[in-house]
Structure formats: structure tokens, C-alpha cells
Nucleic acid binder design. Structure first.
Lengths: 201, 201
DNA sequence: ACTTCTACCTAACGGCCGTTAGAAATAAAT
DNA sequence: ATTTATTTCTAACGGCCGTTAGGTAGAAGT
């Protein structure tokens, strides 16, 4: 093997990429817990073993850091949902909808501070950040519009689809306010929401 | 009429009560829009024509002010819902549930910055504030437990009731994230949620 | 050995924060 | 008119904030 793992000079940013990931992870947790405004770069840096100024080697600003955290928050959920849907193309429209719900909720509640940070912080984050997230948010919304549209059938109006999407995403995302993994069970909650969705032909 | 409207000395706090109400109103709007941490007492005071220090004549701290805003947020919704339910005792259990939803949503979306401030800010407000709000929140939850319990019937388990409460409150409160009064209609959205609730006997 | 690049640190800048003590103004009571 | 109570202002306190400029240790490349 005469080739290195990467063709560029030095050993190329192995350390930086790891530090960047750690910063993002801690930032996601802090944003989720305390919110964007109350997340101090000094506290954040301390938790990853740095000084505040050093964060600027990895991110140009607090806003950019938060934007990346929240962008990853959409990405991880969307990847999970899309992946599950692709692996289960044979399901009925209703089953696909329930599968998407279970995947969305599982990712949100057990896996990722990023998505919960996104959901919780979005209303209070600077408008420039919200602006940069519009595209990814719209993309994820369209995933739901698609499966809900198929579930409701060809006679479904856009406003019907929108309303059901808001209802389901609201019922799921609101779980951030009450879900306690010691007491609650994701599958049980998904089932109880799914019971509200009638079988269709 | 030898008696004044109030028996105490002077004319007793007429001005202070009005100023207090105005402070609370502006604070509610600011909390709803920018969040608790980003609400500056200097900005708040400026909007009511005061200096920051003067607020401390009416409230002992920023936390106490926010607590009162959020407490009123529960009160206004609970009063509205309880009032509508008492005025309509003859309805079926399902109709009562839908009526409660419509009242909750109408109050939340068109009337009150206080309730939306509560819902939006609760996750990020200091723990002492959350502690002081626990009682009123539990009281309002019990309103929903009651009407949902009756709707689901005597065979309903507590966890069933809880899950349906979370689903409905989530579907409603999440509307803060998307509702646009120019485009959306409260009654239409309530109806589309209600369509998910089967008739029961 | 010498240079170059990486990843972090030090130290500070200006700015805004919640809060407080005490003075000043306004209004009411006597 | 004088006193008393109410409401607001002034001015500052200590503290934390995001950000930046310039320095530095050490590894990588030559």
C-alpha cells in the first residue's frame, strides 16, 4: 500500500474533524437543555477542554455553530425515516405512515440531541439561522407530505395533508416536553397515535 | 355615597395596578417573540415608558415577572375552557372534548400572548420558575384528564388518557410554530383533528 | 535542521445584563 | 402648607457575553 488514506498534505485534519464533532455534540446537548441564548461559548469550550476563542478555529460564529447543530438535527431524522421507508417499500400506505412516525420519534427521543435542539430552539434562534434552515426543513416536510398524501388517497386536498402533518408532527414533537424514558415507551405512544388513524383502502 | 370605591388610604394603587398590567402585557409579547433569556429588562422598560430599575417597584425580579406572565398564561386558557364547558353541560362527551379543543386553540392563537409565552418559554425558563408553575399546570392537565376520561369511557386506563392528552395538546400547542392567521383557520384545524376522534357510545 | 501548518491559548475589546441604593418627582392626606 | 405615600429616575455595581488579534507548542513535511 503505497497510498495514504488521504492524498492531501500532512495527515489532514483528523484531529480537527474529531474536535469539531465533539463541539457539535456538546453544543447540541447544551442547546437542548438550556436554549440558544443561554448557551455560553465559554461553558461549551470548557466542556470540550478548550478555551472559548479556540472554538473559532472550527466555527466562524456562534450562529454558524448553532446552524450546523440544527441542520444535523434534521439530517439525522430525515436519514432515519427515509432509510426505513426505502427498506420497507412493500408496506401499505398506512403502515408506512406509522413506520415513519415510529422512526421519527425513536430518533428524536433516544438517539439525538441534535434534533431535539432543533425543535426546541428554532423559535428563538436568530432569524439568519432560521433562514438558513428553511431549505432542509422544507425537504423534510415534503417527506411527510408524500406519505400522508398517499395515505389519504388521491382525493386529499393540500390543506387536509397539511393539517394531518401538523397534527402528527405536533403530537410527536411535543413529546420532548413530557417523555421520560424510565416511565414511557416509544412504541406504546406511537401505537396510541396510530389508533387514531383509520384504515383506508 | 359616603364610601369610596375602596376603604384603604389614599386612592390606593390605581396607577400601580395599571402599570403592572402593562408591564405584564409587554413582557408576555417579548417572551413569546424572543424568549426568556433574550428579553432584556431595559428593552421591556423602554416599551412601557420606564427605566429598567423602575420595574423593581412592581416585581421583585425578572424571574418573578416571568412567573406571573406564565401563570396568567395558564389562567386565561383554563378560565376560557372551564367557562365554555360549564355553559355547555348538555353536550356529549365527544362534543365537550372538541369544544375544549376549540376554546384552547382560539385562546392560544388569537387572544393571548401569555399562554403562548408560557408554552414557548417553559422549557428554558429557570427551574425555580418551573417549580412555581407546577401546581397550575397540573390543575389544567386535570381538566383534560377529566373530559378525556369521560370520552374514552370507564374502561379507559390512565396511560390511555395520558397518551390522548399528549397527542391532542401536542397537536394544538404545536400550532404556535406554523399558524398564520392570514392563511389558517382555527375552526378548520380543530375540525380536522376532531375527525380523528371516533364517535363513542 | 529548518520550515510550515495545525490546533489551541492568552488577553483583551466593547457591550449588555440583572440588580440595587438612594435621590427626585408626583400625588394625596392632613 | 406641610407632611406622607407612591411611583419613577439616576447612576452605578459586578459579571458574563461573543468576538478578535496575535502568540505558541508541537506535529508534519522537506
Amino acid at each position: 500500500m503505497s497510498e495514504e488514506t488521504r492524498p492531501s498534505r500532512h495527515r489532514t485534519k483528523a484531529k480537527a474533524a474529531e474536535a469539531r464533532r465533539e463541539i457539535l455534540g456538546v453544543a447540541a446537548r447544551m442547546m437542548r437543555e438550556t436554549g440558544y441564548a443561554d448557551m455560553s461559548l465559554r461553558d461549551l469550550a470548557a466542556e470540550v477542554g478548550m478555551k472559548a476563542g479556540s472554538l473559532y478555529y472550527h466555527f466562524p460564529s456562534k450562529e454558524a455553530l448553532a446552524t450546523e447543530v440544527m441542520r444535523l438535527g434534521v439530517e439525522v431524522v430525515e436519514d432515519a425515516v427515509r432509510g426505513e421507508l426505502e427498506q420497507n417499500g412493500q408496506l401499505t400506505a398506512r403502515e408506512r405512515l406509522v413506520l415513519a412516525m415510529r422512526t421519527h420519534l425513536k430518533t428524536l427521543l433516544s438517539e439525538s440531541d441534535f434534533s431535539s435542539a432543533h425543535i426546541r430552539c428554532y423559535p428563538f434562534v436568530p432569524e439568519t439561522v432560521r433562514e438558513e434552515l428553511k431549505a432542509v426543513r422544507r425537504a423534510y416536510n415534503s417527506v411527510w407530505n408524500d406519505i400522508i398524501g398517499v395515505y389519504l388517497g388521491t382525493a386529499a386536498t393540500p390543506v387536509q395533508i397539511r393539517h394531518l402533518r401538523y397534527t402528527l408532527l405536533g403530537a410527536m414533537n411535543w413529546s420532548l416536553e413530557w417523555f421520560n424514558s424510565d416511565r414511557d415507551d416509544v412504541d406504546a405512544y406511537v401505537t396510541s397515535i396510530a389508533d387514531l388513524l383509520p384504515e383506508r383502502d
